[in-house]
Amino acid sequence: MADGTEARTLRTVRRWLWIFIVCLVLSGLTAFPLRLETGWLTSAAEHAPTPPAALAWIERIRTGVAETDDRYPFLAYGTDWLAFAHLVIAGAFWGPLRDPVRNVWVIQWALGACAGILPLALICGPLRDIPLYWRFVDMSFGVVGAVPLLIVLRGIRRLEAAQATAQATDIPWRAAGSLH
């Protein structure tokens, strides 16, 4: 791989990593103001062409969050930890930003986490009375999250190949000197 192509690939990898990191951080930050957000969502759904079943579900969520917040505010501490976990996970991508090839395992781990969203939604969703269509919304986060990670992984594989080629071209010179 020519130096220009390798540099371009590295920029692409880092750009997609930043997109993924920003999305993780935003996802985490939105887990804090749930009462406010569910109010906004309900208002938006009431003013948009929303299927009745979806509107009923959104209103049920808003009511549940509000009543829980009024009567049992300590339960929101669980979503605070969820938010914190998103922020910590975003921090784990510092390694791949610095050295994507060495830290490819973080990308592989994140792809596994994205895949894990699917069985979690399918198994836990019915246990928590989550409607099927909402489970598909939840599962879409795993699918959508995997897209930039797969682009990053493909770029890292190209960088690995370029590094291997560069090392292979150095080896004959060293090997020739060591044979005599």
Rank of each mutant, 00 (worst) to 15 (best):
L87Y: 03
A44Y: 12
A146N: 06
P73H: 10
G112F: 03
G155K: 03
L55E: 02
T68E: 12
L75Y: 14
P148E: 01
L150C: 09
V144R: 08
R98A: 12
V106I: 12
G125T: 09
A54D: 06
C23Y: 08
C23R: 02
L118E: 10
P51A: 10
C23K: 03
S43M: 11
G91L: 11
A110Q: 05
C23S: 13
W134Q: 13
C124G: 06
I130T: 15
G145P: 00
L149Q: 04
L111P: 02
V147A: 13
F141Q: 14
G155C: 07
V65T: 02
Y77L: 12
F74Y: 14
R135T: 12
R60I: 06
L122T: 09
I21V: 15
A31P: 01
V25Y: 04
R157Q: 08
L118G: 01
A45F: 04
L150G: 06
L97Y: 09
A44T: 12
V22W: 00
G91F: 10
D70W: 13
R154K: 13
C114A: 05
V22M: 03
R154H: 14
D99K: 08
A56P: 01
R102F: 03
A31G: 00
A83L: 09
W81M: 14
L150A: 12
P52I: 04
R62G: 02
L34G: 02
A146V: 01
G64D: 03
A54S: 10
L41I: 10
P131F: 09
F74W: 14
G155E: 04
D99N: 14
R154T: 12
L122I: 08
P131S: 08
R15Q: 08
I21L: 01
F93Q: 04
L111W: 05
W40Q: 11
E59Y: 05
A92R: 09
R71C: 00
Y72A: 13
L149N: 00
A44V: 15
S140K: 06
E46W: 07
D70K: 13
R98F: 04
E59H: 06
I58F: 06
L55M: 00
A146Q: 06
W94Y: 12
V13G: 00
I117Q: 11
V104H: 11
W57V: 02
Y133S: 05
C23W: 12
T38G: 07
A90G: 03
T38D: 07
V144A: 15
T68H: 07
V106M: 07
L26F: 13
I117W: 09
P131R: 09
R98I: 10
G112R: 03
Y133L: 09
L36P: 02
A110D: 00
V104P: 00
P49A: 10
L87R: 01
L26Q: 05
S27D: 07
E46R: 14
